[in-house]
């Protein structure tokens, strides 16, 4: 029963792909009574394709590039089916969302790229601050372990995890001028994101510290190491490996959250894209902005999933 159907057949899959693509793109949409045959044929293309596609995807021996390529082929078929059946105004859509002329006007791509650079700067500065904050809070909480201090650290963590960062950004940005504190929008954005991320990272690092057996600390202290030395030399080096997957996941989230800084007029990707959109009455800058985020985040997610696979067991 599992015999013939579960065998991966890449050549047959490729043949099915080109046959399906040819049908979907080359033949005109039928009108009138025969339309049900056309619908059935379209559905049939996908059923046949999936019957060949699924065994390849679940086969452990199949190489990754083949799986990726066949997944891309499915995506192309879906796009072709959409193109065939949707009653869309393709010309207008292309003009509004994929307008090369708008993007090639002088200075436009330069502004987009400077937005990317600012977003990366917000990301890096807040990441460094949040990491230091998180490690500091978690280490102090573990070593000093004073009831009052723990209360304040927990309160910080709970408050900053309970408010959406975008709200915090707006409140801080609009309250600052009246508080006598002068901060540029960039600095405000970095500080707010660092405080929010620091709250999450405090919990991430705390979990990493608590995951280390208490006997490790006892053993380190019995040699004569101080509590800080035991933390630095024995606990933290072991925590790092435990924490790394969670930490790198938070990192991706932080990069995406830099987009929220557009609400306080930091000229990062989204803010620049929206400005250009209203200037040219054209949405192509938003599409380019999305591609810029992908250009940064796609490699990041690949690296993170590689790290997750190397997560230490036990």
């Amino acid at each position: 029963m599992t015999g013939t159907l579960s065998q991966p057949r890449p050549m047959l899959l490729a043949l099915m792909f080109f046959a399906g693509l040819g049908y979907l793109l080359a033949t005109p949409v039928t009108t009138g009574a025969a339309i049900w045959m056309d619908v059935a044929a379209t559905v049939g293309v996908f059923i046949l394709f999936l019957l060949l596609f699924v065994p390849l995807q679940i086969d452990r021996r199949a190489p990754d590039w083949l799986k990726n390529l066949s997944a891309f082929a499915l995506f192309v078929l879906l796009a072709a089916a959409f193109f065939r059946w949707a009653d869309a105004d393709w010309g207008r859509l292309g003009h509004l969302f994929f307008n090369f002329e708008v993007m090639s006007r002088p200075g436009v791509m330069l502004r987009m790229l400077s937005g990317l650079w600012i977003a990366v700067q917000v990301f890096l500065f807040s990441l460094v601050l949040a990491t230091l904050l998180g490690i500091f809070m978690a280490v102090v909480r573990s070593i000093v372990n004073d009831a009052l201090l723990n209360f304040f650290i927990d309160a910080y963590v709970d408050v900053f995890r309970a408010v959406p960062p975008i709200v915090l950004l707006l409140v801080t940005y609009s309250a600052l001028p009246y508080s006598g504190i002068v901060l540029s929008p960039f600095a405000t954005g970095v500080v707010v994101l660092a405080l929010v991320e620091g709250a999450y990272l405090t919990e991430v690092f705390r979990a990493g510290i608590e995951a280390i057996n208490r006997n490790q600390v006892l053993s380190a202290r019995s040699i004569g190491l101080s509590a800080w030395q035991a933390m630095r030399l024995v606990v933290l080096p072991q925590s790092v490996r435990i924490v790394l997957p969670d930490y790198s996941n938070r990192l991706i989230g932080l990069m995406k959250r830099t987009a929220e800084c557009s609400v306080i007029a930091i000229a990062e990707i989204l803010k620049v894209a929206q400005d250009l959109q209203s200037q040219f009455v054209n949405a192509t800058p938003l599409i380019v902005g999305a591609l810029l985020y992908m250009a940064v985040l796609f490699p990041m997610t690949r690296i993170v999933s590689r790290i997750e696979r190397s997560r230490p067991r036990n």
Partner: peptide, 15 residues
């Protein structure tokens, strides 16, 4: 004080 007195545990507790 602890540096001057060694201690060996049941489950070794090596790093």
């Amino acid at each position: 004080v602890r540096a001057d007195i060694g201690m060996v545990f049941q489950d070794y507790n090596l790093f």
